[in-house]
């Protein structure tokens, strides 16, 4: 674990460095509060900090106040190392957000166990953050394909609608359905069906731009959100996607399965009037027309319909 030492006395600093390194810490040292503050802004900054109370310039107490005033970044466990052993000072320090203190001259055994207590807090927070991130990923991504799930792509579309209104910018939406997917499932089984879905999603994802959004709407239906795209651009992207899927069958352990998709597109003419439901419905209507017109094609809803 990385640990920060802010200590202006070279003897104390050297002693701390040596024993902390002996205990397996990776030590970052500095000699005043300002330097410590800068180190703590870095990416992968130490989460454990030993600060001397009395330092030139910004002292340990002021630094602690500054650290606790941050609204972002991980929690930093602060231990104040000081020869002040006045009760009032300890209260002042803890009030400011110091987690623990140790008075100089310190005994290394005491420091060791106190640091261990600090690490427990940091480890606990790291575990919580990791668990939260993992849940967040699960909550927003489709388990099979890894693209946005229904809820997340809806949120993205809603956000892009608002952004288009504000910036008076075009917005394209595609509703995509895999042709004869039921037939694939019935003939080859659901596992092969999953392979087909994943392969198609992979090809679609490659063909869209990094700032476009793609999500799974339902079983074999997908939504693509295309910010800043007019009719012309949306048509081009839809054609590209159709080709990317139909030009090559999906290879499975069983055999090569020819695949195609149908696409319903919608680009509202007047972004000021659009809402989420109407744009989904328009794309859906266009998708039905593509299906009716023989599949492996795209249809666009007449923009004045929205």
């Amino acid at each position: 674990m990385r640990i920060l030492i802010a200590e202006d006395d070279p003897v104390s600093s050297r002693r701390l460095e040596t024993i902390l390194e002996k205990w397996g810490y990776e030590v970052v040292s500095c000699i005043n509060g300002m330097q410590a503050w800068e180190i703590l802004q870095e990416e992968k900054a130490p989460k454990l900090a030993i600060l001397d109370w009395m330092m030139p310039g910004m002292d340990g107490l002021e630094l602690c106040r500054k650290i606790r005033g941050r609204t972002n970044g991980p929690y930093i466990y602060i231990m104040m190392l000081t020869s002040k052993d006045d009760k009032d000072d300890i209260v002042k320090g803890m009030d400011t957000g110091v987690d623990d203190y140790i008075t100089k001259p310190f005994y290394s055994h005491e420091l060791k166990v106190r640091l261990r207590a600090g690490r427990r807090i940091i480890d606990l927070q790291t575990e919580l953050i990791e668990a939260r991130d993992a849940f967040e990923l699960k909550a927003t991504h489709d388990a099979l394909t890894g693209i946005w799930n229904r809820g997340a792509i809806f949120d993205i579309l809603k956000l892009e609608i608002e952004r288009s209104k504000r910036d008076k910018r075009d917005l394209g939406v595609l509703m995509i359905d895999i042709d004869h997917f039921k037939h694939i499932n019935d003939n080859y089984g659901h596992c092969v069906g999953d392979v087909v879905i994943c392969d198609i999603v992979k090809r679609l994802t490659i063909k869209i731009r990094p700032y476009d959004g793609i999500g799974r709407f339902g079983g074999e239906e997908f939504i693509v959100v295309l910010p800043g795209c007019n009719n012309h651009v949306v048509s081009g992207i839809a054609e590209r996607l159709l080709t990317a899927i139909s030009e090559m069958p999906v290879g499975t352990n069983e055999e090569m399965i020819p695949v195609s998709i149908s696409i319903g597109a919608c680009v509202p003419e007047n972004v000021g009037n659009i809402n989420f439901e109407s744009i989904i419905k328009a794309a859906d209507d266009a998708l039905y027309r593509a299906k009716d017109d023989g599949r492996n094609c795209f249809r666009m809803t007449d923009v004045t319909d929205v």
Binding site: D8, D9, P10, V11, S12, R15, D52, M54, K104
Partner: peptide, 8 residues
């Protein structure tokens, strides 16, 4: 400051 150093 001297006290801090000497305390080591």
């Amino acid at each position: 400051k001297l006290k801090g150093g000497a305390g080591n």
